[in-house]
């Protein structure tokens, strides 16, 4: 499952980032394997999305989010 499929309020653990060109940037921003992530907001036109990490809030486009593989937790 990837980050675009996450629903509001649902939490997930990041497993890996499949796009090599994005992984460095995402890691530096704190979006890295093992972190818990939650969907917080969706921009007015349905894209980009804003996600909550343990300590920060990051927004990214759906096309970028598609490369983030996640595992939902209850």
């Amino acid at each position: 499952m990837n980050l675009t499929e996450l629903k509001f309020g649902q939490k997930a653990i990041i497993e890996r980032v499949t796009d090599e060109a994005l992984s460095l940037k995402l890691f530096e921003m704190g979006l890295l394997p093992g972190e818990t992530i939650m969907l917080e907001n969706v921009a007015p036109f349905g894209d980009p999305i804003a996600v909550l990490l343990s300590e920060s809030k990051i927004c990214l486009r759906l096309q970028d989010a598609a490369s983030v593989q996640i595992k939902p937790i209850n």
């Binding site: 994005l22 940037k25 980009p48 804003a50 920060s56 990051i58 927004c59 486009r61 970028d64």
Partner: peptide, 11 residues
């Protein structure tokens, strides 16, 4: 380059 939009939303 690849274009992306990844940005922090500060509190």
């Amino acid at each position: 380059q690849k274009n992306y939009f990844i940005m922090e939303l500060p509190s």
